[in-house]
Amino acid sequence: MDIKEIIQPENLVHKRTPLMTDATLSYCPGCGHGTAHHLVMEVIEEMGIQQDTIGIAPVGCSVLAYDFMDIDMSQAAHGRAPAVATGIKRLWPEKYVFTYQGDGDLAAIGTAETIHACNRGENIVIIFINNGIYGMTGGQMAPTTLEGMKSSTTPYGRDAKQMGHPLKITELVAQLPGTYYVTRQAVHKAGNVRKTRKAIMKAFEVQRDKKGLAFVEIVSNCNSGWKMTPNESNEWMEEHMFPFYPLGDIKVEGKIVKDLLKELM
């Protein structure tokens, strides 16, 4: 069979979602941000809620998310996306509101906003991209940087005695009564992408059913910040990030499903 016979409109199985604009993504080659963007937009497309969704772009690499996502979006001050989302959702309870934040935004400068939005149980979705580094500003240490991990501000590796321990903010918010669905996923392999898509879908369904806050962490790579090729960084992530940030659901239907104490040991 000739390739031209296969490439026919009736045989189409996957194409770029029209909810992503034609703007070229500003991310480095191989960055998980792009995959995560597409997933969020695919879910919104599948649920048919493009007209009813408001996204909050953070400060960080994904600061330009409003250029790429063809939905209504607002920009928040650094770390304040959950606070802005709270305001929008309370004024427009029938709209779908989500924040899209990186680890420097959500787990460092926005820790207070994150924890209090989760504790209040605001009916929003938080998409949290964790790559263990401040990507946009040049690969500085973030709260999520692993122990011993090199960054531009920890050239000899993160020393817990001097710089503190890496922060598992997802496990932290899972313990708050306001969160209804908390999960950690990845987007570097096709299987993980499919699971992440399901998780994001579930998060938006939690919001639709007004159950509480849904928090989806996506462990991602930062090949530029980690000074690796995209595939090397994905392997490094599997080897080093996943043992500390294990994938899977943490809280489902308001109940913690993972033995957190065991994992924190």
């Binding site: 069979m1 296969i6 490439i7 026919q8 189409l12 996957h14 770029r16 080659p29 792009g34 096709a190």
Partner: peptide
């Protein structure tokens, strides 16, 4: 497509592509 005869249209490449540049077609022979 380096080896077009191998492709089964599983779409794995397309869903992991960060820039969404791949369109996939599949047909049952």
């Amino acid at each position: 497509m380096k080896h077009p005869e191998n492709c089964t249209g599983c779409a794995n490449c397309a869903i992991v592509c960060p820039d969404g540049v791949i369109t996939v077609y599949r047909v049952k022979t």
